[in-house]
Design a protein around this nucleic acid. Structure first.
Length: 199
DNA sequence: CGTATTTGACCAGCGC
DNA sequence: GCGCTGGTCAAATACG
């Protein structure tokens, strides 16, 4: 399967990428929590990086909640709920594409445990499967090399972390509920972010 | 010796 | 059904 790149990397309107109700709900919920009345803009992020960052968004303590693309869906009514795998043409909302010839994995600040590796049909490069190392957190991510351009790594996230990023080094409050605070910063070995909500 | 990774086996959708 | 494919498990292995 070839993953499309972000359909509109410069857009700040995420809503057009959320075709599924649960995505839209969670998106609006988060926008409300961070005080965005128009629900159409993302937090402002700035970063420095040794890698070239291609996609418009990157995971962060807040945006991880948006960075979800389930691999399968539950469809149907109560008695007949079935699972459906992601179809080839389903939109993949958050695939992060980074130029990385040295480090395969995107350093997103979370700690991951690798649990699988599979050759993918049509690609000379295997896909790697990871779970969040935090107990009781079932967020997953997959990493592939871009078949069309092996210099790039595609990272796909599924799920919402139920804990803060271990890389949050500053927040304007001691508690961990980042969504209720305006200022925080985020640092990994590769990236450093800062976020300041507008007044 | 404890923890993380590797890797073949297993399993579940999906298309035919 | 059945086979193909991708996702997960878990025992073995590597590594600090």
């Amino acid at each position: 399967m070839n993953y499309p790149s972000n359909p509109n990397p410069s857009s700040t309107d995420f809503t057009e990428f959320f075709k599924f109700d649960d995505f839209e709900d969670s998106f609006h919920m988060i926008m409300e929590e961070i005080g965005r009345e128009d629900h159409s803009s993302s937090p402002t992020l700035s970063w420095t990086s040794s890698e070239i960052f291609v996609a418009a968004e990157i995971t962060s303590p807040l945006q991880t909640s948006l960075a979800t693309s389930p691999m399968s869906f539950e469809i149907g009514e109560k008695d007949e709920i079935k699972k459906r795998k992601r179809h080839k043409d389903d939109p993949i909302v958050h695939v992060f594409k980074t130029k990385s010839t040295e480090n395969f994995a995107l350093d997103d600040g979370y700690k991951w445990r690798k649990y699988g590796k599979k050759p993918i049909r049509g690609s000379p490069f295997p896909r790697h499967y990871h779970k969040c190392s935090n107990p009781d957190c079932n967020v997953k991510k997959r990493t592939d090399r871009d078949t069309n351009n092996p210099d790039y790594v595609l990272t796909t996230y599924e799920g919402i972390h139920n804990h803060p990023s271990p890389s949050v080094v500053y927040c304007d409050s001691d508690d961990f509920d980042l969504t209720s605070h305006n200022n925080w910063s985020f640092k990994t070995n590769t990236y450093s972010f800062s976020h300041s909500a507008p007044n």
